[in-house]
Structures are given as C-alpha cells and as structure tokens.
Design a protein around this nucleic acid. Sequence first.
DNA 1: TTTTTGTTTAACAAAATTGTCAAACAAAAT
DNA 2: ATTTTGTTTGACAATTTTGTTAAACAAAAA
Lengths: 200, 200
Amino acid sequence: MPVKDCKTEQHIKETARRIFLKEGKMLATTQEIADAAGVNRTLLHYYFRSRDMLFNVVFTEALTKLRERLHEVIGSQLGFRQKVEKLLDVFFEDLTELPYLETFITLQLNQEPHKYEEMFVHLPGGKERIRNFLKEIHHEMEKGTIPVMKPINYMMNIFALIAYPYVAKPVFKNMFDLSDTAYNKLLLDRKEMILSLLFN
Amino acid sequence: MPVKDCKTEQHIKETARRIFLKEGKMLATTQEIADAAGVNRTLLHYYFRSRDMLFNVVFTEALTKLRERLHEVIGSQLGFRQKVEKLLDVFFEDLTELPYLETFITLQLNQEPHKYEEMFVHLPGGKERIRNFLKEIHHEMEKGTIPVMKPINYMMNIFALIAYPYVAKPVFKNMFDLSDTAYNKLLLDRKEMILSLLFN
DNA sequence: TTTTTGTTTAACAAAATTGTCAAACAAAAT
DNA sequence: ATTTTGTTTGACAATTTTGTTAAACAAAAA
C-alpha cells in the first residue's frame, strides 16, 4: 500500500472523538480506544505517536471547528437578531454532537494553559471579530432592542443559557426526575425562551 | 496515641479537596496529594483505603454540602425574590470556593451514575422541596413578577447564568483577553444583571 | 515499666498503562 | 518477479501508579 490510505487513521480518530468528547470518558486508555475501533493498539502509536498526541489532535480539531463556526457567525453580514439566532443554532448542534466538549475545554485549558494559548491567538482576526460583535451589542442596547448591560455579560449570557443545560445535564435530569428523552425535548424548547430573554 | 486524632485524616482530605475541586486537577496521583499534604503516601491508604475512596469522600462531601445549602434556601420561608437572591449568593460563594465542583459533577455523574443516584434520592424531602419551588415559580409567573416560561427552564436559567461563567472561565478569559482579576471583577457585577433578567 | 493502641514509615509487590521493536504482511511500482 | 512502500501485528520493555506489609514509633493506659 504505497499510497497513504489514512482510512485507519481517520477511523481511530473518530473513535477517539466519540469516546472522549461524546461519551465523556476522559480517562479512556489506549486499549479501550483500540478495542472500540477494532484495531491493534499499536496502531494508535503508529499514527499518533502517543495517547497524549491522539487526545490533543481530537481535542484541538473539535475546538478549532467550533471556534471557526462561531466566528463565522459573529463575523457574518447577518442582522443582529439573526446572528444571535444562528449562534444559538450552532451551539445547539455542536453540543448535541459533542456534549462533553465544553467540559473538556474547561479542564484542559486549566491543566495546560500555555499549550492552547497560542492556538487562540493564531486564529486570524479572531480578537477583532469579537471586539466588533461587542460593539454591535452595544449599539443594539443604544437602539433599545436588547437589555442594557456590559456587552461582555450579554455575550456570556448567550453562551450560558444555551450551553449550561448540556454541561449540567446529569444534575438537572436527576433534580427534575426526567428521562433522557424528556430532557432532550426540554432542551429543544429553550431556543425561543432564550431569545425572548435576550431581546426586549 | 490511643485516641484517634483524625488531624492527619482531615488534613489529607482538605488537601485532596483543594487539589481536586479547587485546582481542577482531576488526574492528581496519590503521590502528588501526599506531597502537597506533606505526609507519607501510605497514609492516604491507611485512612482512605484507596485513591478512589479518597476521591469519593471528598467529592461526595462537597456535593452534599452544596445540595444541602441550596435545599435550605429553596425550602426556606423567604419571599420569592429574596429566595432567588440567596440562591445566587450560595452559588456564588460555592463556585468561588470550589470552581471545579460543577465540572466534576458532570463528569462523575456520567461515569458512574448508579453510584450517586441513591445519594440524590436519599436527601430527605428533596424532590418535594423542588416541586414546591417550581410551583412557587409558576405562581410568580401568574402574578406577572417574572417572565413566563416553563418553570423548569426558569430554574435552569438561574443556575446557568450564575454558574456558567465559572465553568467556562478559561474560555471567556481568553476570548475577551481578561486578566484573572479583571475576570473576577466581572463576575461580581453579574448578580444585579442576572436579577434584572430574572424579574420583570 | 510494660502493654496496648493507634500512627507513621520504608521497602516491596502488583497492576495497569504506555511505548518500542522487529518481523510479517499487502499492494502498488519497478 | 522483485522491490519498494506503507500497514499491521505480537512480543516485549519501561514506566507510572496503586496497593500491601511488616516493622518502627509515640503516647496514653495498665
């Protein structure tokens, strides 16, 4: 096979992503991942050198993808309300696909901050797009279409209201005695409610 | 020392709590904890049998304490608004003390759900207190003092708005380019803003 | 004083996990 | 057909981490 086929590599990576970010098994061993992927454990090392690097690739890819999607939205030419709606949609999709990404970001960015700092910095035009969005928020406040507060707080609220119910899913499910399907149904309803909170 | 002195035991437990829940070092080894506590590693086993049990004791205690405090508030005789304010205060205090508790709850309750289910169930009058609070919320909506939505969503919002900025601290700090002190200052401001969102 | 009780320690054993290697292998290129 | 290239495997080594044990120890009780 002189042609790099990268089928196995992809497969391992996807399996790892599923186990780490979808099922939340942060402590999964190379053996578990190899078994789940149905390949020899040595292949993980062949393709990714170490468990650490495999984790890093998976994590970084997911994080980058989410960030790109979010930045694309806030940098788009949509009107403000459409932008916020789209932001909620993107989050909703992403959290449905990878419920544990948020949690891992928290832990990882704390464990090895230096490792990821540059990654954030190197996103082209990232900081500026965020500054512009904050300005837009400020402008909407002056127009009176949204509640007045520090723009950063407004932006945090968007994230908090959509993301937290995913992060805290096990707690809320238990607290309110809800089945998995009942909880998911509840999550679907939240978008409209959130919009009504975010806009006057 | 025929009298059980439990000073060392306490000390180990507190050190473990600091490392696990305050510093977010989920993967800390028994050696690291022993070193941080300045004791011989064998003592962890002497007092707690295994790393797992030590973690479990620390985690369960913190979780129980938080739950008790929250239940005490929602079950209290305070008026509705005072109750919500107090709820925000409790969360604020707890998250300041143990910023990673939330994150760990998420991961733990997912990893070994059965282990913690009974714990939740066995909280005396827990479910009922929550049901009553939800009724209270519903009543406030009828009175028109708060925005109308599913009461469960209202309760989720309370938690989300106060807790998420702690959970996602590393992300937001980076996103908005804030120092640690600047971020903490921001968090302090949120209470009033949150109240204005939660009430009409 | 010596016995008893509970604590602390160092040395050791066991387990779990990661990482390496050389050899077997398959398929395309020569 | 043979070589080359990249893939896969099993056996093995290294490391890290946890858990156990027996002996040393200190202080109160007998």
